[in-house]
Design a protein around this nucleic acid. Structure first.
Lengths: 330, 330
DNA sequence: TTGTATGCGTTATCAC
DNA sequence: GTGATAACGCATACAA
């Protein structure tokens, strides 16, 4: 394993000069530059990045906290984050928290130990106070998920609006008994959407029933379970607003299985507009979330925090918006 | 930012002793150990990982090459890899190659620059000779994909068998005009499955037609395109073997769109048995690949290469097998 | 059981 | 333009 010293020796120059060549310093004669490059090639030299990191205090690596890698929504988020990261010479350390507070806390130590320059959170399990402690060690960017107690840099959409237009759509279709289904009672996104749901219901003078609220559905399987519970109700809702297309797909699937017609017996509205939304039968009406773009922006925001202004990518001006995509499940 | 020296000073001890406490060295008196721990806590000390890395030459980080993060099959693979990594205190640097040879080559430099201890490849774009150059810098493990020119440590299944049982299943259903559809003409997995397909066809004395072979379909969208091409044929195949449930789902979707009945007009068989396989209508007959387990094993294999034997997890004995899951698309 | 000294590979500062 | 030297923070061989 060749080091900079080996290169310097072979080229008959000092380590400083070699270093200067590597870092494209302005004042190096063409002659020596050539010498150094030859030596590097001959030795198949590659700089040791931990030494560089130790010296420069920069890792060019960002940690991305993801609750569940197999949830497609987060894959698209990650894909967007990755696109901007790669384009700017940054690497991604992927930290799957599995919705676990302790796991999440352990990953936070990555920034304490200077293993990453910053952290992008796509979900948050611990209380804000816990997270805040880590913020003095490096920048934290919230991506999609957020915390209203905090003023952390973040990229987010108006989720109250998302809950509102979804519910509103169902109301406009004539529904009165509308159920609401979200991923986590802890998530601020879920709370915001529920607020939008309640706003629309209230505006229309409709009753909000406790038994129509499901707050623990995150994936396809959960969706099936939700439908089973609905099927068992004496007085069933005629429509349901869900927090993800995965869940909605599970509902649609199980409904067909149990002979409940969508949308006649039960209108279903999804969230995200993932590819799965058009694979179900009937296809899902859904609220489109531009996951890739959200990820891109979060990474751009991060770069603006860790890079000198002139090197950071510009932040897009236009706000990201949720929009409803009408298909046949409503 | 406190360093080990700060801790040593505060505790009134030497840096060595502090280091020993951190690394759980056997011979440290309880007394000093307590002193050190107090000082660490008081200073909110956390060891600098690049310094540790530089010193120890170990990063406890593995790079995982993934062609496309949004392809669910790879999400499950990654999830399995992550499970074992986290359990053993390792981190994952995720490298999305986007099926690009140059991007892949650049990522290989991570191991050259000692930024990771090893690399897990879930796909391979460059020629074997290119990859081999990097193997002298650190262990490379092939996960699912492989290269028959190489003897790289790998985790893989009998894909010839996969192609065989899928095709055989279609033959047993009475089909004679069977199309074949795979992701990449470069992939060894694809080639192996095609070999299995050809074996089954030949065995049954059936004709293999060039126009029935599609070798560039990787996702849902590609599946739609394949179906369109089939629909335009004068003499259509009556069945199609595909390389992924994504592609199969696209075919099924587009078939319905164009009024082609599955399985009556066209039987479709997928691969992987992802959740999507039971979301389509009709549900997909498919060849189940235990993606999570494959990922787990690949990481275990990697740990056996980078860790001393006594610290590495045991390698499961039983071979991983492909099996056919019959549903209604065939 | 603990301390001293050295080096991991790089870059920045300061001379020349 | 180029080179010597120190420093980044830690862990280990060796001495005590």
């Amino acid at each position: 394993m060749a080091t900079i010293t080996d290169v310097a020796n072979l080229a008959g120059l000092s380590r400083s000069t070699v270093s200067r060549v590597m870092n494209n310093y302005p004042y190096v004669s063409e002659e020596k530059k050539r010498l150094v490059e030859e030596a590097m090639k001959k030795l198949n030299y590659y700089p040791n990045s931990s030494a560089q990191t130790l010296r420069s205090q920069k890792t060019d690596t960002i940690a991305v906290f993801i609750p569940m890698l197999t949830n497609p929504f987060f894959s698209y988020l990650l894909e967007g984050i990755d696109a901007v990261a790669t384009e700017n010479g940054f690497r991604l350390l992927v930290c799957q928290t599995r919705y676990d507070r302790k796991t999440e806390r352990q990953f936070f130590n990555l920034v304490k130990s200077k293993q990453v320059d910053g952290i992008i959170l796509t979900s948050i399990e611990n209380d804000w106070s816990t997270v805040r402690d880590y913020m003095s060690y490096g920048p934290v960017v919230m991506c999609n998920e957020y915390d209203h107690e905090s003023n952390t840099p973040n990229v987010r959409l108006d989720q109250v609006y998302g809950g509102y237009i979804g519910t509103r759509h169902l109301i406009d279709k004539g529904h009165k008994k509308i159920a609401f289904c979200q991923g986590s009672f802890r998530s601020f996104i879920s709370k915001a959407r529920e607020a939008g749901y309640r706003l629309a219901m209230k505006e229309a003078g409709l009753q909000i029933r406790d038994e129509y609220a499901f707050r623990i559905a995150a994936d396809y399987h959960d969706g099936k379970e939700v439908l089973k519970k609905i099927a068992a109700m004496v007085e069933r809702p005629t429509a349901i607003f869900t927090g993800s297309d995965q869940v909605a797909a599970g509902i649609v699937y199980e409904a067909r299985h149990l002979g409940i017609n969508v949308p006649e017996d039960l209108a279903v509205i999804g969230f995200d507009d993932q590819p799965i939304a058009e694979m179900t039968l009937p296809q899902l009406t859904t609220i489109r979330q531009p996951a890739h773009e959200i990820g891109e922006r979060a990474m751009k925001l991060m770069l603006n925090l860790v890079l000198p202004e002139e090197d950071a990518p510009p932040m897009p001006e236009e706000p990201l918006k949720l929009e409803i995509i009408e298909r046949s499940s409503t």
